[in-house]
């Protein structure tokens, strides 16, 4: 390979520092995670930013890992589904998806869960959405807000109603004392 068409990059994935010495510049963050680090929890659906299956959390924000180059993330902190919880110690969002059957085939699920975790953070941070009635007020969690904010995560099995129930339940665990 032309040495100018590869680059060195280091970022943190789920608490572990990962250095790529000569990564093909074309490698997306998604392919770096799946093909190089063998973290196959993050899924490749459409590979064009339309389905959300590749959603991961980078520096606290969700993004489509298929539409960003790995070399653009020098020094970043990446959290994938594997970093949220483990089979022995599930993240409350993962546990709620199991409890409420928030999937059928499961392919979109890691993206749904990463997205949902970030959605709760975004509402807490006061970021409004298309359905927020009063732009100048602190947005409040509701199922309408959740559905709008999760519209970048498609589920071809159509498990949406159970996904919404799972996120509502997880929020009660993660933010006790708040009301829907």
């Amino acid at each position: 390979m032309d040495p100018f068409e590869s680059a060195r990059v280091t970022f943190d994935v789920n608490g572990q520092s990962c250095t790529f010495e000569a990564l093909d510049t074309r490698t997306t963050l998604l392919d770096a995670l799946r093909e190089h680090l063998h973290l196959t929890g993050t899924k490749k659906g459409c590979d064009h930013g339309q389905c959300g299956a590749c959603t991961v959390i980078v520096d606290g924000r969700r993004l489509n890992a298929c539409l960003t180059l790995a070399v653009m993330h020098e020094g970043a902190k990446v959290t994938t589904i594997e970093g949220l919880g483990t089979p022995e110690r599930l993240h409350p969002m993962q546990a709620a998806f199991v409890q409420h059957d928030g999937y059928q085939c499961g392919y979109c699920t890691p993206g749904q869960i990463c997205s949902a975790v970030a959605v709760l953070d975004e509402i807490r941070a006061g970021i409004p959405s298309h359905v927020t009635a009063d732009l100048t007020a602190q947005p409040l969690f509701s199922v309408d807000e959740l559905r709008e904010r999760m519209s970048g995560n498609l589920c071809r099995c159509g498990a949406y109603s159970n996904i919404a129930e799972a996120v509502v339940a997880a929020r009660e665990q993660l933010e006790p004392g708040t009301t829907t």
Binding site: G49, G52, T55, R61, R62, L63, N64, L67, T68, S115, A118, V119, E122, A125, G126, I127, P128, S129, H130, T132, L135, T136, R149, M150, S151, G152, N153
Partner: peptide, 29 residues
């Protein structure tokens, strides 16, 4: 940009337009 308090208060059409576009993941990038 959509979440900036000054934009939401004084230029709300801009916040509304941004929030009507794309997805949360795409708007973050």
């Amino acid at each position: 940009l959509a979440a900036d308090a000054r934009v939401r208060r004084d230029h709300a059409v801009l916040s509304r337009a941004l929030l009507a576009g794309a997805s949360g993941q795409l708007r973050n990038r």
